[in-house]
Design a protein around this nucleic acid. Structure first.
Length: 307
DNA sequence: CGCCTTTGACCCGCGC
DNA sequence: GCGCGGGTCAAAGGCG
C-alpha cells in the first residue's frame, strides 16, 4: 500500500468539522481507492471535501495497521486541526478504528489515543454492519417517495417491508471531534428527534434529522465515554440538496464565517469540477486514515481531533 | 406562529 | 418467548 496516495479533509482549526456528506450508493466490488478525491463510487461529496480541504496524504508514510486490518495512512496538511479519518467497508467486517495522537509538527506520528473512542464507535456499528445491502438503498430516503416526508417514507418502508426482510440502512459516515459542544454546526439544519441513554455511558445519544424536505439524512451525536471531550458524530444518508449555508452566498469561501461555521458546499463543488487539486501544504500535522478494502456496503468513520 | 427540543412510549431486531 | 438495547414516533412545551 505504500505509495498509494490519498487526500483528506482539512478543516479550519477555528472550527469543528464542516459539512460532511454521506457516501453515495455503492455497487459491486469497488477497487480499493487510492485517493479520497478519486472516489466517485462512494461519493463525489467526499471528493469535494477532499479537494476543498486540500488535504494530501503523504505517500512517504507507510500505512499502519490495526488489529482489524485496516490500512492507515498518514496525511498532512498545513492546518492546525488534527484529523483522523477512517472508512469502514463492508458491514460484515466489524473493524476497529485506530486513532492518532496529536502529532507535533514534522513528526511522523501515530499512536492511538483515540482508539478507545474509535472502538466504541466501531463496536457500536458492528451490528449494523451485518445487515446491509444498502448501496442502492443509500439513495432511497430521497428517491423512494417522490416528494413526501422522509418520516412518512420511513414508515411506509417499514409497513411495506416484508417479514424477514431486514431494514435497510443508508451508508454511514462518522467522525470524532474534540469539542465542548455536542452538536457541531455543519451548515445544515437539523431537527432533533430523539435522545437515548447509551449503555455503559453517562452521556446520551442524540438523534437528528435534516430538516430539508425530501432529505432523509440523519445524524447521531454522542460523547465518548472514554474521553468525554470527544464527540462522535455519525451521518447516515446523503443530502439531496445543497448546504443551506451556501445558498446565502459568500465570496469568502476559504474562510467560513465564524458565526455559522458553515461549510461551503458550493466551493467544494467548484473545486471538484475544476478538477484542481490544491497545491502543497505546509506539513504541520499528520493524519491517519483507515481504508478498508470492501466498500460494497459502506460504513465510514472519520475521526477528527482538534488541537 | 413556526420551528425546535424534550421525553416517554413504542417498534423492531437480536441474543439467550 | 422474553428481555434488552437501538432507533423512531409524536405529543407537549419552549423560544424567538
Amino acid at each position: 500500500m505504500s505509495g498509494e496516495k490519498g487526500r483528506y479533509f482539512h478543516h479550519d482549526s477555528s472550527f469543528d468539522p464542516y459539512s460532511f456528506f454521506a457516501p453515495a450508493a455503492l455497487s459491486g466490488d469497488p477497487p480499493l481507492f487510492t485517493d479520497f478525491a478519486d472516489f466517485p463510487q462512494i461519493s463525489s461529496d467526499y471528493g469535494l471535501l477532499a479537494r476543498a480541504f486540500d488535504l494530501t496524504c503523504s505517500p512517504e508514510h507507510e500505512p499502519l495497521r490495526t488489529d482489524a486490518g485496516e490500512r492507515w495512512k498518514l496525511a498532512r496538511d498545513g492546518f492546525g486541526t488534527e484529523l483522523t479519518a477512517a472508512v469502514h467497508g463492508n458491514h460484515t467486517e466489524g473493524a476497529a478504528v485506530g486513532g492518532t495522537t496529536r502529532a507535533t509538527a514534522n513528526s511522523s506520528a501515530s499512536s492511538s489515543s483515540t482508539e478507545a473512542a474509535a472502538e466504541e464507535v466501531s463496536g457500536k456499528h458492528e451490528k449494523d454492519q451485518e445487515d446491509e445491502e444498502v448501496v442502492e438503498e443509500g439513495k432511497r430516503g430521497g428517491d423512494v417517495d417522490d416528494g413526501s416526508d422522509p418520516e412518512k417514507a420511513n414508515k411506509k418502508l417499514k409497513k411495506t417491508m416484508k417479514k424477514g426482510e431486514k431494514r435497510q440502512r443508508q451508508p454511514r459516515f462518522a467522525f470524532m471531534t474534540k469539542s465542548e459542544v455536542d452538536h457541531l454546526e455543519d451548515g445544515y439544519r437539523w431537527r432533533k428527534y430523539g435522545q437515548k441513554a447509551v449503555k455503559n455511558s453517562p452521556y446520551p445519544r442524540s438523534y437528528y434529522r435534516c430538516t430539508t424536505q425530501k432529505c432523509a439524512v440523519k445524524k447521531r451525536v454522542e460523547r465518548s465515554c472514554q474521553d468525554p471531550a470527544i464527540v462522535i458524530t455519525t451521518y447516515e444518508g446523503q443530502h439531496t440538496h445543497h448546504c443551506p449555508a451556501t445558498v446565502r452566498g459568500s465570496s469568502n469561501l476559504l474562510e467560513p464565517s465564524p458565526a455559522s461555521s458553515s461549510f461551503r458546499h458550493d466551493f467544494l463543488f467548484q473545486q471538484l469540477h475544476a478538477g484542481g487539486v490544491p497545491g502543497t501544504m505546509e506539513p504541520s500535522h499528520h493524519y491517519q486514515q483507515v481504508l478498508l478494502p470492501d466498500y460494497g456496503l459502506l460504513q465510514d468513520m472519520i475521526s477528527i481531533r482538534r488541537s
